[in-house]
């Protein structure tokens, strides 16, 4: 039975996990965007080694499952190479960031390539250097195109953070699982509330994505 008292009991228990969910989201979004820009720019580089290497990274991380990558970082790599990522929090953050960074690097690359060729030519005619053309003309326009997609991936990253409960991080889902295992009959209400939690967290991100879409509509080449 769904009762008010059950909600009163479950809600504060889930609240304990919100801290981990949000910090993992913020950190993995930060590093995810960072990796996306680095990998996206490397794939456009003139250096073939750099291009192939980042291409390899992108395909590996896009082509395998995030949860297996998470287990690799948390269980396998410390054993194989003796590399300790410091904590399970860092393992979760790095796995999500590497995975979404790979996806988003394609957005970075595609957006830069889709800035009209005439823009670069006009910048050349003003005698800008290659770096100035990128920094002053191409990149600011490309970023506007990236924003809406970046927003969508941010929402996906929020949902991906729930996987860190599987390596023992105490996020919202972790506390939900604990409650369910102590009282199976409460499973429906527990998981309903977990969904509500994620949805409430996603709301501002959805709003942010809309905002980014309207920003990106302004000031892009015709």
């Amino acid at each position: 039975m769904i009762t008010i008292s059950a909600i009163e009991e479950i809600f504060p228990a889930l609240m304990k996990g919100i801290n981990i969910t949000i910090t993992v989201l913020i950190a993995s979004a930060f590093f995810g965007y960072l990796f996306a820009f680095i990998a996206g720019l490397c794939r456009l580089s003139n250096n073939i080694v750099l291009r192939k290497f980042t291409g390899f990274y992108v395909e590996i991380f896009r082509g395998t499952s995030l949860i297996v990558q998470l287990f690799w970082l948390y269980y396998a790599i410390p054993i194989l190479f003796g590399i300790d990522l410091g904590s399970d929090w860092w393992a979760g953050v790095i796995a999500i960031a590497l995975n979404y960074g790979a996806y988003m690097s394609e957005i970075v690359r595609g957006s830069i390539l889709s800035v009209a060729k005439g823009q670069s030519e006009a910048a050349t005619a003003l005698n800008m250097s290659r770096f100035q053309r990128m920094r002053l003309v191409i990149f600011p326009q490309a970023v506007r195109m990236m924003l809406p997609e970046f927003g969508n991936y941010l929402i996906q990253m929020l949902k991906a953070t729930s996987l860190v409960s599987l390596i023992g991080l105490h996020d919202i889902l972790y506390y939900g699982d604990i409650l369910r295992s102590s009282n199976l009959s409460q499973a429906p209400i527990v998981y309903l509330l977990v969904l509500v939690f994620y949805f409430i967290l996603a709301l501002p991100l959805i709003f942010l994505t809309r905002k980014m879409e309207s920003i990106s509509k302004k000031g892009v080449a015709s």
Binding site: A122, A125, L126, M128, R144
Partner: peptide, 28 residues
């Protein structure tokens, strides 16, 4: 010493027209 005007203008859409003109003198 060479400048060019294009058939399709190629103005920078993310800049105001003043910024379009000012950017190269400042940076170049």
């Amino acid at each position: 010493d060479i400048g060019m005007v294009f058939q399709h203008f190629n103005l920078f859409p993310h800049m105001t027209i003043l910024e379009n003109c000012m950017t190269a003198p400042i940076h170049v």
